[in-house]
């Protein structure tokens, strides 16, 4: 998932890890962390019990090859050293996002999702509905939820641009 997200959505280097959003009330169940980390500014180790034991062969993998192993129950956000850059979300800090995570938890039994900023490599984070729609159409994002409106990529008119937007943003 990490490699796919990096190349399809963000158009950035595949070694770069993704960060998880986790329900505040579940954070210590998955990570060695008790407090709040609302801004993704603290990393913490994935709990021992949530890690997956690597085979002898997998242990030998080197450098970028390490990406190919599933290291935990939440593999896409577990970095190769078992760390994760946490964002905790509580009812108070972001009610709508918290509510959605709770629904995801009820559906799947997992209180953790990938969260990455809404932009592509070299682009400032989107600001207006126009910025958001453009970014949505340029990438392989499947859906966009803006306010109370849901956009389905398969129903959108074809996106046409007379230049390659990848040249538009200077690589960071």
């Amino acid at each position: 998932m990490q490699s796919v997200m990096n190349l399809k959505i963000k158009y950035r280097e595949s070694f770069r890890p993704f960060a998880p959003t986790v329900l505040q009330e579940c954070v210590s169940e998955y990570f060695e962390f008790e407090g709040q980390s609302p801004y993704m500014l603290i990393t913490a180790p994935v709990r021992e019990g949530k890690r997956r034991k690597l085979s002898a062969e997998e242990e030998k993998l080197f450098g970028i090859e390490k990406l190919k192993t599933l290291r935990s129950e939440v593999p896409a956000v577990t970095h190769v050293d078992y760390s994760a850059r946490l964002q905790t979300v509580s009812e108070a800090s972001n009610p709508r996002y918290h509510d959605m995570l709770k629904a995801f938890y009820e559906l799947t039994g997992c209180p953790v999702i990938i969260n990455t900023s809404f932009n592509v490599r070299g682009e400032p984070i989107v600001c207006t509905p126009g910025d958001a729609y453009t970014c949505f159409m340029r990438t392989q994002m499947d859906y966009l939820i803006m306010g109370n409106y849901l956009l389905d990529k398969t129903r959108q008119p074809e996106w046409e641009e007379d230049f390659d937007w990848r040249d538009h943003f200077e690589a960071d």
Binding site: K8, I9, F104, E106, L107, F118, V126, D142
Partner: peptide
């Protein structure tokens, strides 16, 4: 949540 569970990538604005 359903979309995410189906492994869709969703933009959240």
């Amino acid at each position: 949540a359903r979309l995410l569970a189906d492994e869709k990538v969703v933009g959240w604005f």
